[in-house]
């Protein structure tokens, strides 16, 4: 079933997104059944037992115990949604991470009001970082210039590029306040908490240009803390990454306000 169309959701571009959409759908079926059931009963009862139609009330009211069965039914459906869908989903998608051999692993460092992206480059090792080296434009994540591992690292501002079909593991940290890293088309949303590095992961299934949104109030520029997500084919991604490492670190003016 096309849940995206049914609920007017953002398109789904990740391997696990359909599962999230399906659980959204299943919960809404439960909600709809309960609501329609109650609503029909409600209207009937308000018409049938209005004072004009029923001048004397019945002291005893409903005698049957059908409502107990309805409540037991609700408990069972909720238990199925919980144990059958939601908890297993969390265990395998949010709490467990794919094997590290075939993944892209990057860091995203949030700040008021931008997303700094840090790639480890050809050696696959992230260079040391420290806030004393931070420069807003030329060294946004604070790479240590004396660390050899950092020489080939690539950093961008607001530009997140990933290859399609490969699990992407993103380590999220924040320089200042709480942000929330939201990729609506990937069905990914993860709070970014200062002082903690929190990993999140997903596998993009579609190439294209998508958006990164901040989902947690982070100050006056919260509304414009938008990032740009580009999903490439593997070849295109490799080409992009090598261009970045030769082009030098950081960005230039106007670099960060569209997909580049």
């Amino acid at each position: 079933m096309d849940f995206v169309k049914l609920f007017n959701l953002p398109i789904n571009a990740s391997s696990h997104g359909h599962e999230v959409d399906m659980i959204i759908y299943l919960v809404h079926v439960l909600m709809l059944v309960l609501f329609v059931g109650w609503a029909v009963y409600f209207i009937v009862v308000l018409v049938k037992f209005r004072k004009g139609k029923n001048p004397a009330a019945n002291y005893r009211g409903v005698q049957s115990h059908i409502t107990s069965w309805i409540e037991i039914g609700v408990v069972i459906v909720e238990a199925v949604l919980l144990i059958g869908f939601s908890i297993p989903f969390w265990a395998k998608q949010v709490n467990a991470f794919p094997k590290r051999t075939d993944t892209v692993e990057i860091r995203v460092i949030a700040e008021q009001f931008a997303w700094n992206v840090h790639y480890s480059g050809a050696d696959g090792i992230f260079g040391k970082t420290d806030i004393q080296h931070v420069d807003k434009q030329s060294n946004p994540v604070g790479l240590d210039p004396s660390d050899a591992n950092g020489k080939d690292d690539v950093t961008t501002i607001n530009q997140l590029h990933l290859p399609v079909g490969k699990p992407a593991i993103i380590h999220l940290t924040s320089k200042d306040v709480i942000h929330s890293f939201s990729l609506p088309v990937m069905r990914v949303k993860q709070d970014v908490i200062p002082g903690i590095s929190i990993p999140t992961w997903f596998t993009p299934t579609k190439t294209g240009q998508f958006e990164i949104a901040c989902a947690q109030l982070c100050g006056l520029g919260h509304y414009r803390m938008k990032g740009f997500l580009t999903i490439h084919s593997q070849e295109e991604f490799d080409r992009w990454l090598s261009e970045q490492s030769t082009a030098g670190k950081g960005g230039e003016e106007g670099y960060d306000d569209f997909w580049n």
């Binding site: 959701l9 999230v20 959409d21 959204i24 909600m31 939601s86 989903f89 969390w90 609506p184 949303k189």
Partner: peptide, 25 residues
Amino acid sequence: LPMFGIGGLTGLPLGLSAPDIHLHD
């Protein structure tokens, strides 16, 4: 009654953590 009903029912997808990923905040 129905208004609180809608409020309560729409709490269900938020109370389950999987749909909450999309709907949170």
